[in-house]
Amino acid sequence: MISREEALDVYQQLRTIRSFEEKLEALVMAGRLPGFLHLYVGQEAVAVGVCAHLRERDAVSSTHRGHGHCIAKGVDLTGMMAELFGRRTGICKGKGGSMHIADVDRGMLGANGIVGAGLPLAVGAALTASVKKTGGVAVAFFGDGATNQGQFHESLNLAAAWKLPAIFVLENNGYGEATPTEFATPLTDLAERAVAYRMHSLVADGMDFFDVFEKAGEAIGRARDGKGPTLLECKTYRFLGHFVGDPLGYRTEAELADWKTNRDPLEVFVAKATEMGLVSAPALARIDAEVDAKIDAAIAAAAEAPFPSPEDVLTDVYPAE
């Protein structure tokens, strides 16, 4: 399955996403960050379990909840943090922010402010891989809400018709913003939608890294082998609101407590990996300390970094002639 070294790497990523997001929440509450944020806490196993199979040049497209996908795809934390602070040193020079954070050189095609818009971008990246015969694949991450958008259906159909190396990773966290999934569609397993496109589909426990890792491995392996796209539904849950400051109220305390107590993806991973003899408490504690120090350093650097100059508003609209 995975080696001890890989297990520590997985934990390091899960923990980085968790801490990054929790520290961001605190920064927003303290009034230190502009704009608004959609955080990934609770869904970490999905990004990490999928991206563990990806190479640097493989592409991913993301959602408004995109920090976890960036981190799992290897985007630089310092550049990400500076971006969220709106600084010139940000990975997008302070022009994108949370909802458009991207690093195309690392195959990260951007968070996206439009629900469903990342899917055709990933189809396009898969088309590039196919035409240029790079052996690469493209992953679209999106939520349950996106499956009711036209872009979802058009993308699945196109990828299936053209048998492209695309993987559609559906993170079903049970809510499209404040609307429960069962109110938005009659389906329970949204992976059923794949039937309409004769696409291979899989359902994974999105709170369990090992389950996501196994099923994503199958999906990505099929794509690399020329067997076409897969719709992989990961059942997951977000522990925080739709955005920081979400008044909540649309889900019960008991429901939230159940997920957090019994299915926290970090705890699930640690329990399973410990039982498999892959990780030990001291090694994990060492990673915890390293991760916190790294994120704190990124925050300190971002807070001290210069803001863009007002004239920068005019640059980067068109490529230089």
Binding site: A59, S61, V104, L109, A117, L119, P120, L121, A122, V123, G124, A125, A126, L127, T128, A129, V131, A138, Q151, E154, S155, N157, L158
Partner: peptide, 12 residues
């Protein structure tokens, strides 16, 4: 779908 794919292909 295909215009979106064309954008993704152009970016990659």
């Amino acid at each position: 779908g295909f215009l979106g794919a064309a954008v993704g292909a152009a970016a990659t």
